[in-house]
Amino acid sequence: MLWYKNWLEMRWRTVFIALLFALQMFAVYRNAGNGTGNVVAATGAFGYLWIIASIMAAGTGIRTQSASLAAVKGLHGSAYFTLSLPVSRADLFGVRTIMGVVQMAVIIVLANCGLWALFPAAQANTTLGDAMGYGLAVFVCCLGFYFFSSLLAVFLDPTWWLYGGLLAIGVCWWLLRGVQSAFNVFKALQERAPLITHTIPWPAMFTSLAISLILFLATLRVIQTREF
């Protein structure tokens, strides 16, 4: 039933993120028929939105349900009820994480492959393999941002978590904007995206996975020891 509870909490956010992704993909594929330059521009511009969407997708959970935040619109103080259930904090966090990650994966794959299939113009300059590769790269590269946001959500209230997450990632992007390394996750979402290069950005994806694993373990550790 934890799955059901998490789904009820996440469903509207999922719909919002799905719409966001669909709009992004629509713009990318609409430009695909007009030449590679337009794809580059659209892909680059919307790289930021994927990052924002992955930050939003992660920011829920027990911290946003603490009694001290019950007065904030849309939040509720049910954390103590949840914590009184015979479920470990690791399980609570694990179920929430799996649902968030699956939600992102489904949205990215469906929006990406679905729109590629629906827009004949997109097929002129990109293959289905490019579209799937692009979806895979977006998903894996966004995991790092997802888990970063997840860690922040443990410490910060919902407002500061969102602004803090965006600010911190904005600073990282600014610092790394001139770094042309294949390990640069930001570049993999923009000018090194598979839709443009027709190759999968493996180094950047491995970097994101490594960062995700570290952040996941750090968040798990904090949740298990944190007082509510």
Binding site: L8, H76, G77, S78, F81, P86
Partner: peptide, 24 residues
């Protein structure tokens, strides 16, 4: 710690704030 799960399995609890899931 880890034993709290077994304690919760055998305990009924009413919180001070009486907050439940508003969407259920």
């Amino acid at each position: 710690g880890a034993t709290s799960i077994e304690i919760h399995r055998r305990t009924g609890f009413v919180t001070e704030d009486k907050q439940l899931y508003p969407y259920m």
